[in-house]
Nucleic acid binder design. Structure first.
Lengths: 141, 141
DNA sequence: TTTATATGATACTAATTGGTATCATTTAAA
DNA sequence: TTTAAATGATACCAATTAGTATCATATAAA
């Protein structure tokens, strides 16, 4: 009942990089500040670059920066890039054809969680996260 | 952003068995009705038996039945038996010392999902699920 | 009492996810 | 122009989760 680690790492990376949109962040720096294994982060940065979330500058003094407008990247975009999330398959019992669509006893209750989760991911952009999270992320384990 | 498969299977099993508290269900029958691989279900039934959720009768005409009062088994009990779930580690960014406890930009938003999820799991018992889900579960894939 | 049908236990295999290692390429700066 | 510091690509390894196979044991019923 969490996102997978790659998703969590990616959320950390992109939200952190949003704080200074035009700054170049190095992999080693991100790895250190966000508590993500260096080599794993490197691999993930490659993917994010190919997917168009970030762009990279190679060579000495190189690094990464956000490649799009912050208002154009929703949390849902990020989650969809790293794991198979969909509102529909959030069935409490894990059925493919979810009884939630009908009226099992978890329909109303779980529907609230499902809808709330989806709404947050869909409507929150990196711009929304930009405000006040820098110091806190930096001091987290 | 789902429970793991073992959790989902277990939720199906126990909620289904709640429909007829005193009936003996065979593994092959549960496997078929709930779309769970037979041998995997067998293994899981063993664990649930050791954990005290169900009791088994061996031999011909044997099977399983719920071992406790339905009001004494919450969804949280079930989830805790099969995966490492805790309200605390539901940090949006996956930090161990979650910035949510402080005031990152996801604090309020994600807190709603987290609290709602926990409340549902904590307060819903198998008795609550007993009502109207039989036909629907049976027709699910 | 034998047989068929059920679960108990546990070892093994497969798939997915998380993480590491290595070498190539790029480029700023000494 | 050489070197150091950065990313690109990709193969490999480890851990966890999901699923399978096998044999032992229990017991109702023929």
């Amino acid at each position: 009942m969490n996102f997978n680690k790659t998703t969590e790492y990616t959320l950390r990376i992109l939200s952190f990089m949003s704080l200074n949109e035009n700054m170049l962040y190095s992999a080693i720096d991100l790895s250190d500040k966000l508590k993500i294994p260096y080599r794993y982060l490197r691999k993930q940065m490659n993917l994010l670059s190919k997917q168009g979330f970030i762009e990279s500058i190679q060579g000495k003094q190189g690094g990464y920066k956000i490649a799009k407008s912050l208002t154009d990247i929703s949390l849902l975009d990020i989650v969809n890039a790293t794991e198979n999330y969909s509102k529909e398959n959030m069935c409490f019992f894990g059925f493919q054809e979810c009884p939630l669509q009908n009226h099992c006893s978890m329909h109303d209750k779980w529907g609230e969680v499902r809808d709330k989760t989806f709404a947050i991911l869909k409507t929150t952009t990196l711009q929304d996260l930009k405000q006040d999270n820098s110091a806190l992320i930096l001091t987290s384990k």
